[in-house]
Amino acid sequence: MISVVTCLLTSLAYRTLIGGLRSGILRAVVYKVAAEQFFLTSLAVGCLGSSVRIHLLSAVMSVGSSPEPLPEITAAVSFLSGLLRSRLSEQQLQGFGGALRETLIEHYRHHWFPDRPAKGSGYRCIRINHKMDPIISKVAARIKMSNLLGLLPKELTLWVDPYEVSYRIGEDGSICVLYEASLPRGPLTCKSELLGCSSVPSQYLMMVGS
């Protein structure tokens, strides 16, 4: 009886773990370690077939030794770094980019929903409105740079959502797309869903496609 229950729980855990490994934001060291331990446990229990164990092992091996930034995070980092390129030294710029990348990975880790791109958009949004966004403030503290607010636009909104990264400078500025990927379901983009639109606004300017 115990073996049957163990096998059922192992199979459920397997499906959950594979799903986590496949979602980009979860591809971190902690999941690799957990997957390795699970693989060894499944061998000991003997519940999973050989083909399933091979599948799991392949998934484990595909996860790198460090978190792999999502293309959306890479686009956001490149954009904000570009705004500072003429105002910081190359060393400062690299420090800012690296700290921002790590901060965004941490901040989005449990707030990234590829099946519902608009969910958590407000949480992920970077907003400067004459005062510093908490995410940027955290980056500034990491690199010990207190003057970032004076180097960035006074009014800036950066949306970082699954499949799309876009920004707006000024309250009445156009929304410009930095990164866009095709959604797995439906033509409604996360930004049009967030704004309650049934179609893309006319002022929606494509800057970079993917």
Rank of each mutant, 00 (worst) to 15 (best):
L156T: 01
A141Q: 15
Y123N: 00
A141E: 14
R142L: 09
G122H: 03
S146G: 00
R116M: 14
A140F: 08
L156E: 03
K154I: 07
A140V: 02
T157W: 08
D133L: 02
D133F: 05
K138I: 08
M145Q: 10
L152V: 01
H130T: 11
D133E: 06
G150H: 03
L156M: 08
G120Y: 13
L158V: 07
I126N: 12
V139M: 07
G150P: 00
T157F: 02
K138R: 15
P153S: 05
V139P: 04
M132H: 06
A140T: 04
S137C: 04
L148A: 01
I126S: 10
G150Q: 08
G122C: 09
A118I: 07
M132W: 06
S146A: 07
T157E: 09
V139L: 04
G122I: 06
L151E: 04
S146W: 00
K131R: 15
A118C: 09
Y123C: 05
A140K: 05
R124D: 11
K154T: 12
L148C: 00
P134K: 12
I135G: 00
L149M: 05
P117L: 10
K144P: 00
R127P: 01
K119I: 04
H130G: 11
L156R: 00
R116S: 13
Y123P: 00
A141M: 12
N147T: 08
L152D: 01
G150M: 04
C125R: 15
R124H: 10
V139W: 06
R124S: 13
G150D: 11
A140D: 05
R127C: 10
I143R: 13
S137P: 00
G120A: 15
P153Y: 04
R127H: 11
L148N: 02
L151T: 06
I128L: 13
A140Y: 07
I136Y: 01
A118F: 06
S121T: 12
P153R: 05
N129W: 14
I143D: 10
N147Y: 03
S137G: 12
G120P: 11
K144Q: 03
T157S: 02
K138C: 12
V139H: 08
S121I: 12
L158P: 00
K119E: 12
P134M: 14
R142A: 14
R127V: 09
V139A: 02
R142H: 10
A141S: 15
L152R: 05
K131W: 11
C125L: 14
D133A: 07
A118N: 03
M132D: 06
A140R: 01
M132N: 08
A141H: 10
K131I: 06
P134H: 14
L151I: 00
L151D: 03
L158Q: 03
I126E: 11
R127L: 14
V139Y: 09
K144Y: 05
H130Y: 15
P153I: 09
K131Y: 13
L156G: 02
N147I: 00
N147H: 11
L149Q: 05
M132K: 12
K119S: 09
Y123V: 12
K144H: 08
G150R: 02
K131T: 13
P153D: 02
S137Y: 03
I135P: 00
L158C: 03
Y123K: 08
I136N: 05
N129S: 15
K138E: 14
K131M: 11
P153C: 06
Y123F: 14
S137Q: 13
L158N: 03
L156H: 01
L152I: 04
L148D: 04
M145W: 06
A118L: 05
A140I: 09
C125N: 10
G150E: 11
L149W: 02
G122D: 13
